[in-house]
Design a protein around this nucleic acid. Structure first.
Lengths: 191, 191
DNA sequence: CGGCGTTTTGAGAGAGCTCAACATCGGTGG
DNA sequence: CCACCGATGTTGAGCTCTCTCAAAACGCCG
């Protein structure tokens, strides 16, 4: 999935120590005491919630520039797990250092508030998209919200974002291709 | 739906002018320029997004103490509609007044960040709940996240929160009642 | 060339949605 | 008091859609 993060947090903490994680390595688990704040410099990391039975819910897939588990800055224990899904590099700060910097520096707290507000918007839209019944409806709303269909090789990510299976999305895309070529009378290579 | 808002914003702006809206009255529409910040003092208000075709997505139902459209504080135009669903009373501030207060008062900016962080958590969980296929799974996760089933008369709200129809939730609740009474051997009035 | 992941398409089963009928409850007004 | 009304809860039947399992074509890269 393509994600544009104009308000990257990395730039505010250039001196923070860097820590590397290999793919699959956990950063923290639900119930752990919050000591550090993780800012993702490169790679991808998932926030995961385990339900009572085996189900794994991916609450969020973080990309470069993002802070992991925003709410942890104000909580004493984590409420979800975090795992690196690719090799990752994090800027690591103590929670106190982060919070005092937040209180001291309006630029940082502004960026923080902005990034949180955007995360709220995105998550709410995702929730509403997933309350739609058909794949066609979900895709329509997703596209209408300013997203664009990426090239082949990334469609599975879109399926995950929409909360449907790969196959369901492939079928819907196939339908749209054939419908479009039916109206234009041309076989066409859509983006 | 029951919602506990320990960090109500109302208390920070006791002097703000109050404005009343009747049920169904719009506060703003997508595309309007952002001039004011609305803090809900009483009642309920919905954030609504209209899709290309007729569908209405309820992005969020705000309750007392909450700020409407958090992201609007940093945006020049609204990205969704807002409508009072009950008679509502709002504290209304100019955006500049709100933002300067935010920059000046650490207590306010702290509460703001906390409330945003919580909103992110809630929205992400809701999104993941709605990516589950069966009503039973959605209800399990929702209950496992610290929610409790309200008394009769509020089940439709739960259905809306889970993103399923009334009937589907009624059936699932009925199943659980009969399953429970089967294991206990007793007909029981569950809450 | 031979894996490996992605895309494509098929078939069946399962689950919720829709429409519909009816029961229940609380409030209103005759 | 009772009839009526609306909203909520309950249950049934059919339809549609996705999910699941499966098989195969395609593309990329070592």
């Amino acid at each position: 999935m393509i994600m544009i993060m104009s308000d990257s947090f990395d730039r505010f903490f250039p001196d923070a120590t860097s820590r590397r994680y290999v793919a699959g390595q956990p950063l923290f688990r639900a119930g752990d005491a919050v000591r550090s704040i993780f800012i993702l410099r490169s790679g991808r990391a998932d926030l995961i919630r385990h339900t009572g039975r085996g189900a794994r819910l991916i609450l969020h897939r973080a990309g470069p520039g993002q802070i992991l588990a925003e709410a942890s800055a104000w909580s004493d224990v984590y409420h979800c797990d975090a795992v690196a899904v690719e090799p990752c590099e994090f800027a690591v700060l103590t929670r106190n250092a982060f919070r005092s910097r937040l209180a001291r520096d309006p630029a940082v707290s502004g960026a923080w508030a902005k990034s949180l507000a955007r995360a709220v918007q995105e998550a709410r839209l995702r929730a509403e998209i997933r309350s739609l019944v058909t794949v066609a409806d979900r895709l329509d709303v997703w596209l209408g919200a300013g997203n664009e269909l990426p090239g082949k090789g990334y469609w599975q990510d879109v399926a995950a974002e929409l909360g449907v299976t790969r196959e369901a999305l492939y079928r819907e895309l196939s339908n749209r291709r054939s419908r479009r070529s039916a109206t234009t009378g041309q076989a066409r290579r859509t983006i």
